[in-house]
């Protein structure tokens, strides 16, 4: 069974093809990073226009990579939310066009859930219950995958997503957009303990706040500038990154402990951060927890994860009607 997955929730036009739930046949991404770079963030109308320009060529490239014709596809999966409305609608409409032309099932997929289920393409069937951290430019959420495959959200950022915080600090110190990979690179030559930036760990909740950290970093840089002190940007980047990583690791692993779960999945674009991967690997090792992290191309937004998640829904007998709505605030239900 060949499932084609379409992802257009933010700034990547992506199409993946998955065979029989676990075998990756194609994973094609048309990135818009360069279009948004001048703005230092994703501009929704720019994103929606670029999605439409790239949609059909990306579908055709994915089919070519899989060595398949559109008529070979058995079902079409698409991200129906959460994400940017205008962007989501391009993918959902394209998916419906395919479903109609070939009279095949359509299945709407939750983007966060797809991030977690992407790991089945490399690590085989997930064996829930498990806890997952989905962390990217758009989301920072801690979720539990239940034994029946359902999802439950434990907590999320109450202000900036982790990737957003990376972008903002990168911008402030003159690095390119997106900021995550730039900070990651710069931080490798820095001392993570050079500056004591705050960790807003707050209470027993699994929610996080990252905007205070961002403000503290900017305040420190301004203070040094006023005092005529040249900051060591590598140290700033390393200390800032360490603070973000600390919050993610601590909250996620506390959630795992509280829920009595010994498997942890890392997903989303920020899961590509080398320090985050390193720290989770160390901590899970110490705690005897199994850590599952997809490779980088399956961490950032992609169509294969949508195809994988859609394949799971189809296997469970779930499909969507042609009136499927795009939902920018789609919740992680059931």
């Amino acid at each position: 069974m060949l499932v084609l997955g379409i992802e257009t929730s933010c700034d990547e036009t992506a199409v993946g093809i998955v065979e029989d739930r676990f075998t990756l046949q194609a994973n094609v991404i048309a990135s818009q990073v360069e279009l948004h770079a001048p703005y230092g963030g994703v501009v929704p109308e720019v994103a929606a226009r670029a999605h439409l320009d790239q949609m059909l060529p990306t579908v055709e490239t994915a089919l070519a990579h899989a060595g398949a014709r559109i008529g070979d596809i058995d079902a079409v999966a698409v991200t129906s939310g959460p994400g940017l409305m205008g962007a989501l609608l391009v993918g959902v409409s394209a998916a419906k066009g395919i479903a109609l032309a070939h009279d095949i099932p359509l299945v709407g997929v939750n983007h966060l859930r797809a991030h977690v289920e992407a790991s089945q393409l490399e690590h085989g069937e997930l064996e829930p219950p498990l806890v997952a951290l989905v962390v990217s430019g758009g989301h920072t959420s801690i979720v539990v995958m239940e034994p029946d495959g359902g999802f439950r959200q434990l907590g999320s950022t109450i202000d900036d997503a982790a990737g957003e915080a990376f972008d903002k600090i990168a911008r402030f110190i003159g690095l390119d957009f997106p900021g995550g990979p730039e900070i990651d690179r710069l931080a490798r030559g820095g001392d993570p303990e050079a500056y004591a930036f705050p960790r807003a760990l707050m209470d027993a909740s699994y929610d996080m706040s990252l905007s205070g950290l961002k403000t503290a970093v900017i305040r420190e840089l301004r203070r040094m500038e006023a005092a005529g002190v040249e900051p060591d940007l590598a140290d700033v980047a390393a200390s800032f990154q360490e603070a973000i990583v600390d919050v993610q690791v601590l909250k996620t692993l506390r959630a795992a402990a509280d829920e009595g779960l010994d498997q942890v999945v890392l997903a989303g674009g920020v899961a590509a951060n080398s320090r985050l991967r390193e720290r989770f690997t160390q901590e899970c090792d110490v705690n005897g927890q199994r850590l599952i992290i997809p490779s980088v191309p399956l961490c950032t937004d992609n169509g294969a994860m949508v195809a994988a998640s859609g394949s799971n829904l189809l296997a469970a007998g779930v499909t969507s009607e042609l009136c499927l709505a795009a939902d920018p605030n789609l919740a992680l239900a059931g």
């Binding site: 230092g40 758009g138 997503a161 911008r171 957009f177």
Partner: peptide
Amino acid sequence: RGGVGAAGA
């Protein structure tokens, strides 16, 4: 330019 991420714009 000061940096607004995916959700902000």
